Amino acid sequence: MELDTTRPFPRWQGLRAGISRATLDGPGYQRVLHGVVIAAGVPITPRVRAQGALACFFAHAFASHATAARVWGVPIETGPGEHVTVPVAGERLRRDGVTCHVRADASAVVVDGVRVSSLPDLFVELAGDVPLVELVVLGDWMVRRKGITPARLIGACRSAPGVAGRLARRAAAYVRTGVDSPMETRLRMLLVLAGLPEPRVNVTIRDVDGEPVRRFDLSWPEGKVIVEYDGRHHVEREEQWEVDLARREEIDDHGWRILVVVARGIYRDPGSTVDRVWRLLRARGVPDVPSRPSQAWRPHFPGHASYL
């Protein structure tokens, strides 16, 4: 029996192919999961672990939940362990390190040679494991980077049951188009959960002649207010930093106010960020700004150093 040892395979297949137990246990092979090995020297990537998780299942099983998320390369942290979904309970298997789910109506696609959950299904699957803000980060990423529409995510969540289904539907309602980065999403969600008017995403600012000057992360055009997330990449690229400063000065000349938020203002001191933005919106006369910010953001942004 010919066996491709550069792909994960169950030990029993190796034995059937004529590889001895001593050889399988020797330095020529490495463990992927319990009972599943691969040739030594092959990097154990998320793709390889997904293949290993599927190695003992029938062909129409697929990697799902956190396993599928890692294969897709989603921009959020996922929990440990591998996940496989099968269409009927009779195909469910017990395997160490693998959680098996049963879902008859799930859809799968092939990514990097591995059958995985489709993105709308993955959004719903992760609602049971991922907090609200990170689920919105995932949705914004799917829309911006993978061409999924917010309407498709809302549709996928419509009949999802239980607490996870409710969280998925709530998160899908916050997903927006054109969001450039996960930190933009986190900043926007901090402000929205604080009860502030929702900003417009990535509006292009133009000069008096109608020429585009710059596109900013979050803005309230009615008050000429801009809030931007500023990451370390600006500091590390001095030339880009200088260009950004010049553009900000030009925007200021046209009556706009710019407030810059860094990672500390989201992870370590979110309350200060909420207060700064709230005060600026009030000062600039932006409609529907509350008399005080809501405290509903607090469970989602604890503001501890351990969250960095």
Rank of each mutant, 00 (worst) to 15 (best):
M1L: 09
E2L: 04
E2R: 15
L3D: 05
T5E: 15
P8T: 07
P10A: 09
W12Y: 13
R16M: 05
R16D: 12
I19M: 13
D25S: 13
P27D: 15
R31F: 11
R31N: 15
I38T: 08
I38F: 03
I38Y: 03
A40K: 03
R49V: 10
R49Y: 03
G52N: 07
A55V: 12
A55T: 11
C56G: 14
F58L: 14
A59F: 06
A63L: 09
H65Q: 13
T67R: 07
A68V: 04
V71A: 11
P75H: 00
G79Y: 06
T85D: 07
G90A: 12
R92V: 06
L93R: 15
L93H: 13
R94A: 12
C100Q: 04
H101V: 03
A106F: 11
V110C: 10
V111E: 15
R115A: 14
E125A: 06
E125K: 02
E125Y: 02
E134C: 09
W141C: 02
M142T: 07
R145M: 14
G147A: 09
I148K: 08
L153D: 08
I154F: 00
I154E: 14
G155H: 03
A156D: 01
A160K: 12
G162K: 05
V163K: 13
A164C: 06
A164H: 10
L167P: 01
A168Y: 10
A171L: 08
A172F: 03
A172T: 00
G178W: 02
S181Y: 07
P182D: 02
M183Y: 04
E184D: 08
R186N: 01
R186T: 01
R188K: 11
M189L: 10
L190M: 05
A194W: 01
L196W: 06
E198M: 00
R200I: 06
D207I: 02
V208N: 11
V208F: 03
D209R: 13
G210A: 05
G210F: 04
G210I: 00
E211A: 10
R215I: 05
L218S: 11
L218N: 02
P221L: 10
P221F: 02
K224I: 01
E228C: 11
D230F: 03
R232M: 15
H234V: 02
H234R: 14
E236H: 13
E236I: 15
R237Q: 14
R237I: 10
E238S: 10
E242K: 12
L245E: 09
A246V: 07
I251C: 06
G255V: 12
A263I: 01
G265A: 08
G265D: 07
Y267G: 00
D269W: 05
P270W: 06
G271Y: 00
V274C: 10
D275K: 12
R276H: 10
R282F: 08
V286Q: 09
V286I: 11
D288R: 13
V289P: 01
P290K: 04
P290F: 04
R292L: 08
P293H: 06
R298L: 12
P299A: 03
P302F: 05
H304S: 09
L308E: 15
